[in-house]
């Protein structure tokens, strides 16, 4: 499927990426080429084939409900762009 500029803008929004007007044609071409490659999948007969989500046939492991990790808030917030009183700061969301 060939994508146009509007498609790219829509996808970029879904992916939370900002795109410059000048980048749109390049992305449209590249993404269309990749999709052309991907669409070779159409030739595969997958009737009655179970989808494989994961390489190993395994069930999700469960463990005892015990505390295993300590609170390390200060340690983790050392690398945050902006924090105040133990909270991550972002631009105002609610007026």
């Amino acid at each position: 499927m060939a994508l146009d500029r509007t498609d790219v803008e829509k996808i970029a929004h879904l992916a939370r990426l900002a795109t410059e007007e000048s980048e749109l044609p390049g992305y449209a071409d590249d993404l269309s080429n990749i999709l052309k490659l991907v669409e070779q999948m159409d030739a595969a007969d997958t009737a009655n084939v179970e989808p494989m989500a994961h390489p190993l046939d395994m069930a999700q492991r469960l463990r005892e409900d015990e505390v295993t990790e300590e609170n390390q808030r200060e340690h983790f917030q050392n690398i945050a762009p902006q924090v105040e009183s133990g909270l991550y700061l972002v631009p105002k969301v609610i007026e």
Binding site: I11, A12, Y27, L31, V38, M41, E50
Partner: peptide, 26 residues
């Protein structure tokens, strides 16, 4: 990221991601 977001977006899941998972089985 954009290819992935597109393949997982509403209306395209079966054609892309599910199809790919089936071929993965093959």
């Amino acid at each position: 990221i954009m290819i992935g977001a597109y393949a997982l977006s509403a209306g395209y899941y079966d054609a892309y991601y599910l199809k790919a998972q089936k071929i993965r089985q093959l």
